[in-house]
Design a protein around this nucleic acid. Structure first.
Lengths: 339, 339
DNA sequence: TCGCGTCTTCAAAGCGCTTTGACTACGCGG
DNA sequence: CCGCGTAGTCAAAGCGCTTTGAAGACGCGA
């Protein structure tokens, strides 16, 4: 059943039927009611394809998931971010168009989505300090928003958290407890969030006159295994750190595993602070040992970023929108003065 | 730049240009070369919207992510499944159309995607023993494939793993080691995979004359916290089990946390077998303690299911496609005879 | 020279909507 | 009784592709 058939069956023109269904005011009360009833009865659904062509909109937002590194890892935060964003999109009638591509191919993937007109806006995740995707998107003239930012976050819209300040606070907290050898188990250097966290960490140390030691700073893809391996190496080495600052709770789980394998208890023999994205399947609340953590909900970020993006789509001429979220430092059981 | 303008600039008709670009044979060698060069030079990309309307295809596959339960949890395996599927789709020019919906609304979401013609096929994940989505999709006449199956898996295409056999094997392995009190920390009852795993577990116990005890069987959303809470309760209770069979590695991490908090070491004081989906950020290989596990790559499953779906789309009249994968039981460090 | 098959190319008709501009009917004030 | 504003409806023109059916150009054998 298409619009024309529905119109014929009602003895009306497609124009009137279309307007009745889409809520335009130029349709009489009774006519509208008749049309709605007939559409309902016939189980009529307008063709998205035709509507997209006619309106010039796609009612879809482009997301690109890059597979990181040689082992093509999916960033585990994407699922919850998508869930948050999806909620906001759904509320406004947008769908997600998702592309999964190899590392380094995302700029091309965005470009293709936009050129083809498959999307009305684009979401960028995990920006690097200098991210080529941003210039590509600027030049394409498509609304987009970045979750995170680059080194020079000007001329585009973004939503980010106070990474630097959070890690400075966390480091200061450990320093206040008396720790001096604090390791940083960070994400990959190329990502801007990792650089900012490191900045916060180093600034706190420097302020207190504690030397920044390269041997205590690590960066890699934040898997559980990375946390385990790094902590294992540190704990087995000379002068092991008394505290560790871990950029992901998943890696922190690996750190805990390494510690416990050595009979060390977190919060007694080793202090750990991690960043908690509030992943839905990895909660840091409830009974049992909880991590002291810098906490910010990735799901809320997804939701808000999506809302901002929709605002940009509706008002393309607007100035860039930016939001910078404070991050809580939440006390758990994994921090204590060094023994 | 659209097709008509490109054609005009070449002094050709849109017909010829369209055919030249799409590789149809009715175009002369030299003309084709000219067209390709001009399209390249003008950076011409055909409008996906127009193409979809003209061809009647959407070149997209519908995926729906349900938010499970009151706390709206995202199944952590979805990300890796998507990554695998996305790879296969990309190879054939398909995109993913993703919808995130509340628990219980997925049937409606699928229905809407299909009725609107936004997708050419549909992927169903996490089927329940009796899943209404399957009847809806059958009646809609759209190609679809189910990752997993229902109790009566007939009349549709699916890809599943040997859940029953895997859990029977795992249980037998624990029985062979001498365990008699084996707990099952399973996924939610309503899901078919959980029921089949439980079947395998109970069959193995019954075969050996070991009574099935309701107090040792649990089912819930498989978070880390669920593993922790359940293991904690069991270990603190009377007659704690000497072994646990856990349906997800994430929950198994929680089990490990509960055990270690009580000074129990996995593989010495408590045996644990979990199911390992080979999530990219939670590897069960490498150094340190690894779980004895039933292993099957969720990413491979995604890739293969996507390939099967594309086959179905290309040949709509074909009989249902089904695949049932064997599951490895991989020896790790977390199993030993009871003390 | 004619007719016919082959190779290229094209005009035009969709695909199923939205939206513009025009038209009709009606009521009301002048 | 006329003119005009307003509400309701419609015909037709897009949106930018693909695809059908037809036709022109060309070469070759009869």
């Amino acid at each position: 059943m298409n619009l024309k058939e529905l119109a014929d069956s009602l003895g009306l023109s497609p124009t009137t039927v279309s307007r009745a269904l889409n809520g335009y005011p130029e349709v009489g009360q009774t006519t509208r009611a008749r049309v709605m009833a007939a559409a309902e009865a016939a189980d009529y659904t307008p063709s998205a394809r035709a509507r997209h062509l006619a309106t010039g909109q796609s009612m879809a937002i482009g997301h690109v998931i890059p597979l990181i590194g040689r082992s093509e890892i999916v960033n585990p935060i994407f699922a919850d971010f998508l869930a948050g964003a999806g909620e906001a999109y759904a509320a406004q009638g947008y769908e997600i168009l998702l592309s999964v591509v190899g590392d380094g191919q995302s700029a091309a993937a965005y470009r293709q989505m936009v050129r083809r007109g498959s999307v009305d806006g684009v979401m960028v995740q995990g920006p690097e300090t200098e991210d080529p995707r941003i210039d590509v998107l600027k030049s394409l003239g498509m609304p987009f928003i970045v979750h995170g930012r680059t080194r020079t976050p000007e001329g585009y819209s973004w939503l980010d958290i106070e990474n630097t300040r959070a890690y400075r606070k966390a480091t200061e907290f450990l320093l206040d407890l008396g720790h001096r050898r604090i390791a940083l188990i960070n994400g990959q250097d190329r990502f801007d969030f990792a650089r900012r966290r490191r900045d916060g960490y180093e600034a706190a140390l420097t302020d207190r006159g504690v030397p920044v030691e390269g041997r205590l700073i690590f960066s890699d893809v934040m898997t559980e295994g990375y946390g385990f391996d790094t902590a294992a190496r540190l704990l087995d080495g000379p002068e092991p750190p008394t505290a560790m600052l871990v950029s992901s709770m998943i890696s922190a789980v690996g750190v805990r595993r390494a510690a416990e394998a050595r009979g060390l208890m977190l919060g007694r023999d080793l202090s750990v602070i991690c960043h908690d994205d509030e992943l839905s399947y990895l909660s840091n609340h409830g009974p049992g040992l909880t991590f002291t953590a810098t906490r910010s909900s990735i799901r809320d970020a997804g939701r808000r970023a999506a809302e901002m993006l929709i605002t940009l789509i509706r008002d393309p001429g607007a100035a860039p929108l930016t939001e910078l979220w404070e991050v809580d430092l939440v006390l758990g059981d994994t921090t204590a003065p060094p023994r």
